[in-house]
Design a protein around this nucleic acid. Structure first.
Lengths: 204, 204
DNA sequence: GAAAACATACCGAACGGTCGGTTTGGAGTC
DNA sequence: GACTCCAAACCGACCGTTCGGTATGTTTTC
C-alpha cells in the first residue's frame, strides 16, 4: 500500500481497489465516498482530482478492477491445453472445490452490480454486459473448438450451451449468496458438470 | 383502487402495491417514499401510521406482495395432475414462451432484492431466502413424487435437481436482464428443459 | 342518549443527518 | 512559474423521519 505524496498512479489505484472491495461488499449505492477516503487515507480533493463523479469511479472499477482478472482467469482455465471440454470441466471443478462461506458471502461482483444497477443506469449495464458477453464468448469458443475436434454430440449448440453455463454459474452464485450456503453452490455446479459431461460424444 | 377516507385496509394495500412496483423497477434503496406517496395520493403521516419505517414497508412487500402469488403460481403449475416431471416441464415451457422484453426488463423481484440487500440487511435476506427455500421445496416435492412413481433414472437426487432448477431460472432471469435480451432467457430455459428431460427413465 | 373520553386514521410542515460534490489554497515537480 | 497533485473546509440538496395537530369513529359513563 504505502502510498506517498505525489504518486498519482498509486493513489488512483488505491482508490479503485478500495472502491472495488466496498462495492463488492455493500453494492454501489450503499458505498460512501467517505468510507473509501477513510480506508485509503486519500483526501476528497485527491479523489475528485482523479474521478469526476462517484459514477465515474464505479465505472472505472468495472473496467479496471473487475473485468480483466475475471476474464483472464477464465481464459487461462479454458486454454490449459487439454481438450476444451475437459479444460472447462476442470475449471468448474476448481471453482466448486474453492467454494467456501467466505467466497459465497458476497457473491459475484459483476452480477451484484448488474442486478443492482441494470435498471438504474444504462451505461453501467452496458459495461457489465460487455464483460458478460466476452465471458460467454470465451466459453462458446472453447465449445466450438471441442465441436470441431469431434468431441461433442451432434446437435449441441456452442452458443446456447455457453449461455447456459454463464446463467448457471451466476444463478449458483446468487442463490448460494442468498442462502449463505456454500453447499448450494457446490451442488449446483456439480449438476452443471454432469450436464456438460453428457454433451460429450460417447465414442470420443 | 378508489381509496376513500378512513379505509385503512385499502390505504395499506395501495401503499404495498405501489411500493412493490417501484422496488421492482428501481430496487429498494433507489425507491423514495415521496414517489410512493405521489403515486398513491397518501400522505406521509398516513404512511408512517401503517409502517414504522421504510424498511418495515419493504419487508411487508416481500411477505405480502411478492411471496404468495409467486409460490401459488409454482404450486399450481406443479400440481396440474399430469405426472410431476411433465407438469414441471410444461410450467417451464410456459415461462419460456411468455418471455418478452417487458418481462425480462426488470428481472425477478425477489432475486433483485436478494442481490441488492443480502449483504446489507440480514432480516431482508432471511425473508427472501424463506421464499426461495419454499420454492425449492415445491420443486423437490414434485421430483420426489416423480421418483416414487418410478419416472426418474436411478441416482437422480430430487433436492439437488430442485436447487439446480432454481439456480438456472434465477440465472436465466438475471443474465437476460443484464443483456436486455429475452432470447437469452428462452435459450437458457430450453436447455434446462432438455436437461430435465434426460432425467426421465428411458423405459418410462 | 348525550356528553365525555378515548382510539384510530390521517395530514403536512419542518427537522436533521448523510453524502456527493465544490472551492480554495498550498505543496511538490518540471 | 506553470502545471500536476493533493488537503481541508465547506456547501446544499435530498430523503427518511418526526411531530404537533385534525377528523372520524367507538366506547364509556352518567
Amino acid at each position: 500500500m504505502s502510498r506517498t505524496a505525489h504518486n498519482p498512479e498509486a493513489t488512483r489505484r488505491a482508490l479503485l481497489e478500495s472502491a472495488a472491495a466496498q462495492i463488492h461488499r455493500l453494492g454501489f449505492q450503499a458505498t460512501s465516498l467517505d468510507a473509501i477516503l477513510a480506508e485509503t487515507g486519500v483526501s476528497k480533493g485527491a479523489l475528485y482530482h482523479h474521478f469526476a463523479t462517484k459514477r465515474e469511479l464505479g465505472l472505472a472499477v468495472v473496467d479496471e478492477v473487475y473485468r480483466t482478472p475475471f476474464l483472464d482467469d477464465w481464459r487461462a482455465g479454458l486454454n490449459q491445453g487439454g481438450d476444451p471440454l475437459t479444460d472447462l470441466l476442470v475449471l468448474l471443478r476448481r471453482k466448486r472445490d474453492q467454494a467456501s462461506l467466505c467466497t459465497v458471502q458476497h457473491g459475484c461482483p459483476l452480477n451484484n452490480l448488474a442486478q443492482e444497477l441494470a435498471g438504474l443506469d444504462e451505461e453501467f449495464r452496458r459495461r457489465i454486459e460487455a464483460v458478460m458477453r466476452d465471458w460467454r464468448l470465451l466459453i462458446q469458443d472453447a465449445l466450438e473448438r471441442a465441436r470441431q475436434a469431434g468431441l461433442l454430440r451432434p446437435g449441441v449448440d456452442p452458443a446456447r450451451e455457453a449461455a447456459f453455463v454463464v446463467a448457471v454459474v451466476e444463478g449458483a452464485t446468487g442463490t448460494a449468496k442468498t442462502a449463505q450456503d456454500p453447499q448450494l453452490f457446490a451442488d449446483t455446479l456439480a449438476t452443471l458438470e454432469e450436464h456438460l459431461l453428457a454433451l460429450r460424444l460417447r465414442s470420443a
